[in-house]
Simulated scan of single mutants.
Amino acid sequence: MSELNLREAAAVALTLLDLTNLRDDCTEADVVALAKRAHTPFGDVAAICIWPRFVAAARRELGADSPIRIATVVNFPSGDEPVADVVAETRRAIADGADEIDLVLPYRALMAGDAAAGEVMVKAVREACPAPVKLKVIIESGELKEKALIRQACDIAIAGGADFVKTSTGKVAVNATLEAADTMLLAIRDSGRNVGFKAAGGIATVNDAVFYLDLADTIRGPDWAIPSTFRFGASGLLDNVLAVLAGSHQPAARGY
Rank of each mutant, 00 (worst) to 15 (best):
Y212Q: 01
V125T: 13
K145N: 08
M184Q: 07
E3Q: 00
A9Q: 10
A47S: 14
L144A: 09
I48M: 08
G255H: 12
A209P: 01
T218P: 11
R231P: 06
P41T: 11
N5Y: 04
P52F: 11
I158F: 03
A128N: 11
A95Q: 08
E100M: 14
A47W: 08
A56N: 03
K171T: 06
V206Q: 04
A199S: 02
A35Q: 13
D18I: 13
L186T: 05
N21Q: 07
S141D: 10
L215D: 10
R69P: 03
K198Y: 00
E179P: 00
H39R: 15
V55L: 08
G192P: 00
P251G: 13
G161M: 04
T20N: 07
A181E: 01
V244C: 12
I68P: 10
L144F: 04
I48G: 04
L6E: 11
A98M: 04
V83A: 01
S2E: 04
A10V: 02
A199T: 03
L62H: 03
A243W: 07
V210D: 01
F76Y: 14
L19F: 12
E146H: 14
P222K: 09
Y256Q: 09
N194T: 09
D18Y: 02
I226Y: 04
L213W: 00
D114M: 10
A116P: 00
E100P: 05
A88V: 01
L16N: 11
A33R: 15
D114E: 12
L6F: 09
R151Q: 11
V195C: 05
E8A: 09
V55H: 04
L215K: 15
K145G: 01
T229I: 07
A243M: 13
F211N: 12
E89R: 11
A29R: 06
V73P: 06
N207C: 06
L237D: 09
R53P: 04
T218Q: 14
V73Q: 07
T169C: 01
R69T: 14
L16F: 14
P77S: 07
A115H: 08
R193Y: 01
N207R: 13
A11G: 14
L242I: 09
T167E: 05
A148V: 05
R92Q: 14
F76M: 04
T169W: 00
A64M: 03
T183C: 07
R91Y: 08
W224K: 01
L144H: 04
I50V: 13
V104E: 04
A131T: 15
V137N: 12
G142L: 12
T205Q: 02
R23H: 15
I138P: 05
R59A: 01
L135S: 08
L105Q: 05
G255A: 13
D80V: 07
A29Y: 01
G201W: 05
Q250D: 10
L17H: 08
I158D: 00
D96W: 06
L103N: 06
V172D: 06
I158G: 06
A148W: 12
V125N: 08
V174A: 08
P106N: 09
V55I: 11
K134G: 06
L17A: 09
Y107K: 11
A115G: 06
A64E: 14
G161T: 03
L17Q: 10
L105I: 05
